[in-house]
């Protein structure tokens, strides 16, 4: 009986919590006349035209273009984060060198640094390099391990790998490079996958830096396109806007469903995972 009450309380809370998402989903299948006015999740008339209209995109550019842009940016950011953060984490966790302590402390401090303080100088740098309105400003920093969260996550993971592994690799004649490639990197796979998934989702959702660096609609990523869409939308055409929102959220939801265990464990071991 107590078990049942517990489940009921949990499910009721969950229903309230997930209502906005389900609401969005149902709105995306409703004709304009039903939207907003009704609370109910089930459409009285079920239509797909919102989606066909959304796929036409905005500013004369099809939605697939925005999708592709988002994919390129997110894909490159994932690659950059995984490679550069793994390298840095291996150095911090497994190698000894002068100034390691202070540098590590600095890395931790940058976790708390608001990005706004480097935003303007970075903008001027990329402006000098003629990279405004390209993907470079969004992608290049990731290849230089600027996401301290992921360095930290991987340091935590690599530190906990047994010390004997490094010794065994050394006895077998591996230098630090081979030990990294053949021992520590393969063993760190869970941390690498967690980093990859979080990188993808955060880049996919990222708004501020894409808003600043991308100007012309053909370079827009999905969040920017969505915003453009809204500005051109009056209340009567909420439907396509919702359809596009659903399409935008879909990859995140799929990643979540596929990797929810890794994601939740990544949060509980490292403390990252906020917005």
């Amino acid at each position: 009986m107590r078990r049942l009450t517990w489940h009921l309380v949990c499910l009721a809370l969950l229903a309230v919590l997930l209502y906005p998402v389900l609401w969005l989903l149902s709105m995306s299948f409703k004709p304009a006349s039903e939207i907003v006015s009704s609370l109910s999740l089930l459409p009285e008339t079920f239509i797909l035209s919102n989606y066909t209209e959304a796929l036409e995109g905005s500013a004369g550019i099809g939605v697939w273009r925005f999708f592709a842009n988002s994919l390129i940016v997110a894909g490159l950011c994932v690659a950059g984060n995984v490679v550069s953060c793994a390298l840095a984490a291996y150095a911090f966790a497994r190698l000894r060198f002068p100034l390691r302590g202070p540098l590590f402390a600095f890395m931790i401090a940058t976790l708390m640094l608001p990005t706004h303080v480097v935003l303007i100088p970075q903008y001027t740098i990329f402006n000098e390099l003629n990279m405004i309105d390209t993907f470079w400003p969004l992608v290049l920093p990731k290849f230089l391990a600027t996401e301290a969260f992921f360095v930290f996550l991987m340091v935590q993971f690599m530190r906990n790998l047994p010390e004997e592994l490094g010794q065994a690799a050394r006895i077998d004649g591996c230098g630090p490079i081979r030990a990294f490639l053949h021992v520590f990197l393969p063993l760190s796979k869970p941390a690498l996958v967690t980093t990859a998934i979080f990188s993808f989702i955060w880049t996919w959702n990222d708004f501020l830096s894409q808003l600043i660096y991308l100007n012309s609609p053909e370079n827009y990523t999905l969040p920017l396109a969505l915003r453009l869409f809204v500005d051109q939308t009056s209340e009567s055409s909420y439907g396509p806007m919702f359809a596009m929102s659903v399409l935008t959220l879909l990859p995140v939801v799929l990643f979540f469903l596929a990797f929810q265990r890794l994601l939740v464990e990544g949060v509980s071991t490292s403390g990252l995972g906020g917005s």
Binding site: P20, L24, W204, N205, L222, M244, S245, V252, F256, S275
Partner: peptide
Amino acid sequence: LLGASVAVALV
């Protein structure tokens, strides 16, 4: 995971 997105803010 969803809340930081533009889509949810629109909702």
